[in-house]
């Protein structure tokens, strides 16, 4: 019976119960549970190895690999491990190897983002002894990697001025979970008419907690700032943090 008026309201009960042998099972399962469980396990194991895992996100060509190169000028390359996620090719891996950064390439082919299972497999063939940072460069994409856990402790979104200042408004999900937003190609902001005020005001409405660093590869001080941020986050995540 319907609670409102006491009538026999079949529609209120959902679909018709046709057979008496029909079972009705109440479930409450998160659809991403399998991936999340693998991701949580990875994140936990990396903490035990005292490694901070960074999910590096951003559009194709926004400057993700450039950022890794910049970080490696401020943090010794030998304590950084990288997992490169690309649809095809290993050009970024080779670029990093030229700077003596160990990199493992994942080619997702048609896959538009990395998932925890892929990272688990990659970690199986990486030597992380003496590493303190694991940087995962995700597939260049502002949509699909958003919210997909890969075992990271923090998210960095690299967002270049050349993409336009409307990106947070158009792709809020990727910005929503960022711990650090790097505004890259800051040297080009005037040339492309980047509206910084409107960009920052959108960020403050999507993710007011995010740290923001403005960055240009022509000026290395921002990479130093990122390196400090990472060292600080690592201490924080490992629980040795003292204010």
């Amino acid at each position: 019976m319907c609670k409102e008026c006491g009538c026999e309201d079949k529609a209120a009960k959902g679909p018709q119960q046709n057979g008496s042998d029909e079972k009705n099972v109440q479930i409450d399962r998160k659809v991403t549970e399998a991936n999340d469980a693998t991701a949580n396990k990875i994140a936990h194991e990396l903490i035990h190895k005292e490694i901070l895992c960074i999910n590096l996100l951003g559009s194709p060509g926004s400057g993700k690999t450039t950022l890794i190169e910049g970080i490696a000028q401020n943090i010794p390359a030998k304590i950084i491990g990288v997992i490169q996620g690309d649809l095809e090719s290993d050009v970024d891996k080779k670029r990093l190897e030229q700077m003596n950064i160990e990199a493992y390439q994942i080619n997702t082919h048609s896959g538009c983002h990395l998932n925890a299972e892929m990272i688990k497999e990659a970690l199986g063939s990486m030597n992380l002894d003496n590493k303190r940072f694991l940087i995962v460069e995700n597939v260049g994409n502002l949509v699909c990697p958003a919210g997909v856990k890969i075992g990271q402790h923090i998210n960095i979104v690299v967002s270049s001025t050349t993409e336009g200042s409307d990106k947070p408004k158009k792709y809020p999900y990727i910005f929503m979970d960022a711990d650090l937003i790097l505004i890259s190609k800051y040297d080009l902001k005037d040339a492309v008419g980047f509206d910084e005020q409107s960009y920052l005001s959108d960020i403050s409405r999507i993710n007011p907690q995010a740290r923001i660093i403005k960055c240009s590869n022509r000026k290395s001080s921002c990479f130093q700032e990122v390196a400090h941020f990472l060292e600080h986050e690592r201490e924080h995540v490992l629980g040795h943090h003292h204010h």
Partner: peptide, 18 residues
Amino acid sequence: DIEITQGKDLRLRDLRGN
């Protein structure tokens, strides 16, 4: 300074059949 408390999940709820 606002945080999201609901709406970020996809959850399987009821199953009926025989």
